[in-house]
Computed example of a mutant assay.
Amino acid sequence: MKLSELPRRTAATVETVDDHTSNDTIARRLRELGFVAGERVEVMAAGPIAAEPLLVQIGYTRFALRRSEAARVQVRLIEESA
């Protein structure tokens, strides 16, 4: 699933960041910010107009991402053990 599709307040882990071109600057910047495989990520809130931007927490840091940027991040839901 894409990060842009993740329901609010649902924990997930990053699987990959998709490159659209070779030497993709946006994908590289997302990785530099901490969007790397295995990191816990959560969508905290969405903006008022067309749900833009998304407030995303990765680790203890929060970022505002455009939906198009969040759509590059592939995530997997964290299974809650009962």
Rank of each mutant, 00 (worst) to 15 (best):
M1C: 13
M1E: 05
K2W: 03
L3G: 06
S4R: 15
S4T: 08
E5V: 14
R9M: 02
T10H: 06
T10K: 12
A11I: 03
A11S: 15
A12Y: 01
A12N: 11
A12V: 11
A12L: 12
T13C: 03
E15F: 06
T16N: 13
T16S: 03
T16A: 03
T16H: 03
D19K: 11
D19W: 03
D19C: 10
H20V: 06
H20Y: 06
H20F: 12
T21C: 13
T21D: 14
T21K: 05
S22P: 04
S22E: 13
D24G: 06
D24T: 07
T25E: 09
I26P: 00
R28F: 07
R28Y: 11
R28V: 15
R29Y: 08
L30C: 15
R31M: 10
R31D: 09
R31N: 13
E32F: 03
E32G: 12
G34V: 15
G34K: 02
F35Q: 05
F35E: 14
V36L: 09
A37S: 09
A37L: 08
A37K: 15
A37I: 02
G38A: 12
E39T: 14
R40V: 10
V41F: 00
V41S: 01
V41L: 07
V41C: 14
V41R: 00
V43E: 01
M44R: 05
A45T: 08
A46C: 06
A46W: 02
A46D: 04
G47Q: 10
G47D: 13
G47R: 10
P48I: 09
P48R: 14
P48G: 11
I49S: 02
I49N: 12
I49K: 03
A51T: 04
A51I: 10
E52S: 05
P53T: 08
P53G: 08
P53N: 07
L54Y: 12
L55D: 00
L55H: 02
V56F: 00
I58W: 00
I58K: 01
I58G: 00
G59K: 02
G59A: 06
T61C: 10
R62N: 10
R62W: 07
R62V: 07
A64N: 10
A64R: 15
L65R: 00
R66T: 06
R66S: 14
R66Q: 12
S68P: 01
E69N: 08
A71L: 02
A71K: 14
V73A: 09
V75W: 00
R76D: 03
L77G: 11
I78G: 04
I78D: 03
E79P: 01
E79W: 12
S81K: 06
S81F: 14
A82R: 06
A82F: 08
A82C: 09
